[in-house]
Nucleic acid binder design. Sequence first.
RNA 1: UGGGGCGUCGCCAAGCGGCAAGGCACCGGAUUUUGAUUCCGGCAUACCCAGGUUCGAAUCCUGGCGCCCCAGCCA
Length: 570
Amino acid sequence: MEEPKTKNGSEAGESRPGNFIRAIIDEDLKAGKNDGRVVTRFPPEPNGYLHIGHAKSICLNFGLARDYRGKCHLRFDDTNPCKEEVEYEESIQNDVRWLGFDWGENFFHASDYFPQLYEYALDLIRQGKAYVCSLSAEQMRDYRGTLREPGRESPYRDRSVEENLDLFQRMKAGEFPDGTHVLRARIDMASPNLNLRDPVIYRIRHEEHHRTGDQWVIYPMYDYTHCISDALERITHSICTLEFEDHRPLYDWVLDQLDVPCHPQQIEFARLNINYTVLSKRRLIELVTGGFVSGWDDPRMPTLSGIRRRGYTPVSIRNFCEKVGVAKRDSCVDMGLLEFCIREDLEQAAPRAMGVLRPLKLVIENYPEDQVEEFEAPCHPNDPAMGTRTIPFCRELFIERDDFMEDPPKKFFRLAPGREVRLRYAYIIKCTEVIRGAHGEIVELRCVYDPETRGSAPADGRKVKGIIHWVSARHAVAAEVRLYDRLFVKEDPCADKSVDYKTHLNPHSLEVLTGCLVEPSLAKAVPENRYQFERLGYFCADRWDCKPGRLVFNRTVTLKDTWAKIDKKD
RNA sequence: UGGGGCGUCGCCAAGCGGCAAGGCACCGGAUUUUGAUUCCGGCAUACCCAGGUUCGAAUCCUGGCGCCCCAGCCA
């Protein structure tokens, strides 16, 4: 967290946006709750990679801890040995750190509490508030009732404390196969809240756990584990997403029965949605395993590792999460906001360079054959502190194919036959001839340059509106450039439940360009270096594939393109 | 005629009875050797609807309507 530590949100001068969670904390503080402590936690299940939706939660929880001078714990919710892996734990920690947050010593696992959780379960049984149920899964579903009808009590509901204790201990000892018994909380089978109809709190799973190995064959369920874990860690505000709102009565019930250190407050907020992508673990996994993307960190993925590889910066993600706000309304944020955030950051942070994606050869006929000039260009037009780089210039250049049109529309002010244009940081040139190939395609442009226009406007006062980028044919360096676009063509790929969301995958979400040419100063680019290729967009040297002698750039985002808008309108 | 939430500009989102913040997008215009950036200006007589209370309501009350979540031994 590189930002200066600030005081809490209630103090004057604080500019952070207010949200209902901060309002609750402010009130709690005013009322003297929790001895003035603020302790939050980010509790991922290690069964997938983090995505931008998690970033919202991370920024919220760690941000609260920062602003209220509290703590935010990182706790892995690893209660289901069937789905969880260490690979995920590692990636999650990397991603949280990359985002810019630090949990310090406060690193935990729900599995750390298995022994205590077990003791608490015994306690519940002794109080007659939990029982071993031997109904099958199907039977239990049947007994649970429906949304409108109350459930029926299990025939095992009134087993004696002794029998329950005995059975539960034997469950733990591994005497029974999976699915034969569960431990259930004894609450109310007629509750309109299904979560309270004697929820399962322990199940048998003869499965190796990635941390506890084969030490346990019974594993606690989320509802039972999460609240107790929070209490043991003395969490003050347990922030989760809306779908857990119905679970809050159970969260509170469990803590009310037990002798725990404190009773944290669960607060729910709306999860993040972004259009033209999907943010559900299940679907992201499917995209990866189905080979629809190259992996979890494919630059098109909304995963933090994907976004990172695409070229997004941590600060841009944090700003995005800040701008998105925190509320309880289901919402879907425009992808355009994310793009705004990365442009906003890179505009000031990324050094400029010239690169030609689709090269078109251009020969300056009145420029001496052997002459080479070197131009000193600023690395940033508005920030001299970023220094300069030198750009070689000679008779033969490459320009962007899109910057030439034989028969241009009115508002096109780039190169065309007989027209003048400025070569950025160099001379004004005029196109005199178009050379064609065997099939009539344009293969080369012949031009003349005005030697008097280097670094200055023409003396005769004529106006040249267009400025285009270029590279020297003799000095340019080859590069591969990967152009990324939105992953889906539909705003909400999952809106129509009768159609597989994958049918809305954007077939043009990746375009690989291999014949690109970039200015020689880029030869030294190392993985994750970010640049603005002038007039084109922001590009990031690929984290894995960019190596000395083989440049690979990913397009993070284009520059705002007013011309494209005008062109589309006409 | 199950329960729990939510409805303020195209998209987010403040607002908590005193007369609709802000951001994105969008539309003008200025500067500009990136059609970028920056800069100025515009952008809800209106807060799901209908009644009611009040001098005064997005904010309170009543009744509708709409959307989301819940019937895993997932989290």
